[in-house]
Design a protein around this nucleic acid. Structure first.
Lengths: 339, 339
DNA sequence: ATGAAAGCGCTAACAA
DNA sequence: TTGTTAGCGCTTTCAT
């Protein structure tokens, strides 16, 4: 910057003023500075600017993964909103909820000159990271469950799951089974909504089926589900698991939705292309990310820790229908005949 | 840091030495410093460290998207490798190949104190960004096509596509149609490999079908493909488009692979669950990201601009088979009878 | 509108 | 092994 000032024949602060555009500078000097900047292809140092001004323009995202559907779209939502507000985005991944991993990630992030942090608290490591963020750091949580006392953008999974399960019950199913994805806490919103919907309908709450993030696991669970002829409706923690479950059921010659109804959660881009097309709940992750960033800006500017909640929409397609009248399923009759 | 030095009764540089661990410090002072750091919950400022040491520990990723399958996994690969080497990752998205967008993204990134840049050059904006990076910035390109003179990690798409198309030809198809995804240049590696495979087999090269990134577009193209009974084999630019094409074909009562064989590219996690399971090519994006980061470190340490190439593996599943003997497809006979 | 002077919080070079 | 001194490249006073 000193070089630019020399070449333009002005002082260093004047160059700074031209570059930041905050304070008026005479047209002539401005032009001389601009020429010099061009000639030297000068790029200001963000490190020095942050050091001197104490106003970082980077926001950090702390997340448990970057590649899974919901995460990737949420991150993109934050990134787009941040970029249009002139911020750059830094990403830190917390590999596990192990305190060593969490602290390493936080240290790496918080020592950077950042304006604030957006935490994707969809999984145990995200929740753990959120809870270990020092009080002097501006942070907002993104999740499906309420984080009391925190600025937070959420998607109301509990209500959405309730609505979805109620839909299944209204179709005439006696109960609904749940294949859950790894929960962020002891119990996540999808599971709570499912349980409440069953309870308020006065219906038996069956055992839980636990899946990981891998759709192949859904397929294996589908194979197990196929052995119990009482099961006619299954609510899966996300669309990818639902696709696996459907495939597993089909492997065993069961028809979806005639023999068993299967619903997912998320409205994955492939959900509508699946055979049968998935009945699910649409979550707008991109929007979630954008809202999260907006809340962070409010906090940076000294506002209160607000909550922004969004209600996801039920998307009815082909994978759920009324249960088959007893004795109607060819495969199940065969299975029964065998036993 | 001055506070810590005061509390511990040592000088500021001594605190710095304890924190960086580079220079020996007496056990007693080290302990005093550590206690003081703890007591004040002191976090060093990365901005100041970078400014003073001129050794940034952030690598930037420049990319056209963060949420699509291949991109998300590549980014994760870079992130994991970077983290284990003690680097933090910053992400900048280039929205389009429009010079204004490209320059804005580059400026935002390059003014940050970064050690180097990894560019995902899978699309026109990535390629444009790559070409506009100043020579004094350490950069590596990640892509499916050779970028002469650059440090680069690539997946050899051209060979993989060649192999896949040859596989189809060997199954007995007269030719293979290609539904391509948006190319990074005039022609990308997948298309080139397809064309070459057809040429070297002495076979007619049919018109191209252009898709965007949306699987629904694949479905629409499937509908069009279904109207031409000469088409028996289709190579799609990625698995998601292939899933759309298959669904489109099925919408028109055509059977895959009996009536038409469809293959994809990537080995998406849902590819094996699709009905029929997709024949495709496995690309290891995670590994690509890791190799890219390693090359960047080599460059930062003063090494040459190397090329690291990986050959993706053919994955044969159910969606491709021999063409049906003429007059054998129920649907196509019906169509022919109509015309 | 402009320049001089004084830091921002840290590390590097040197001397002790 | 330790402290002193001198910056890193900017922005922010405060004069003028």
């Amino acid at each position: 910057m000193a070089d630019v000032a020399n070449l333009a024949g002005v002082s260093v602060p004047t160059v700074s003023r031209v570059l930041s555009g905050s304070v008026p500078v005479s047209d002539e000097k401005r032009r001389r500075v601009e020429t010099a900047v061009e000639a030297l292809s000068f790029r200001p140092s963000a490190a020095a600017r942050v050091l001197a001004s104490r106003r970082p323009e980077v926001v950090a995202i702390i997340t448990g993964d970057t590649s899974r559907y919901g995460y990737a779209h949420t991150i993109r939502g934050v990134e787009v909103a941040a970029r249009s507000a002139g911020y750059t985005v830094m990403i830190t991944v917390v590999e596990s909820a192990d305190p060593a991993d969490v602290d390493a990630a936080l240290e790496a992030t918080l020592s950077q000159p950042i304006a604030g942090v957006v935490v994707l608290a969809f999984d145990p490591q995200g929740v753990a990271a959120l809870h270990r963020i020092p009080g002097d750091i501006r942070a907002v949580a993104l999740s499906g469950l309420r984080e009391p006392g925190r600025a937070q953008a959420m998607i109301d999974e509990t209500r959405a799951a309730h609505e979805l399960v109620t839909h299944l019950l209204q179709l005439g199913h006696r109960t609904v089974h749940h294949v859950r994805i790894p929960p962020s806490r002891r119990e996540d919103g999808r599971t709570t909504g499912w349980r409440r919907a069953l309870r308020s309908a006065g219906v038996e709450v069956p055992r839980l089926w636990d899946a990981d993030w891998n759709p192949d696991t859904g397929r294996r669970i589908g194979h197990q589900l196929a052995t119990d002829p009482e099961i006619t409706a299954v609510f899966c923690g996300n669309d990818e698991i639902a696709m696996g479950v459907i495939r597993g059921l089909q492997d065993r010659e069961l028809r979806v939705p005639e023999d068993v109804s299967v619903v997912g959660f998320d409205d994955h881009p492939l959900a509508r292309l699946w055979t049968p097309a998935l009945t699910t709940v649409r979550q707008d992750f991109f929007d979630l990310g954008g809202r999260g960033f907006d809340l962070l800006v409010e906090r940076i500017e000294g506002g209160p820790a607000r909550l922004s909640s969004q209600r996801p929409a039920l998307v009815v397609r082909e994978s759920a229908g009324p249960p088959a009248p007893a004795g109607t399923s060819p495969t199940r009759n065969a299975v029964t005949a065998l036993s």
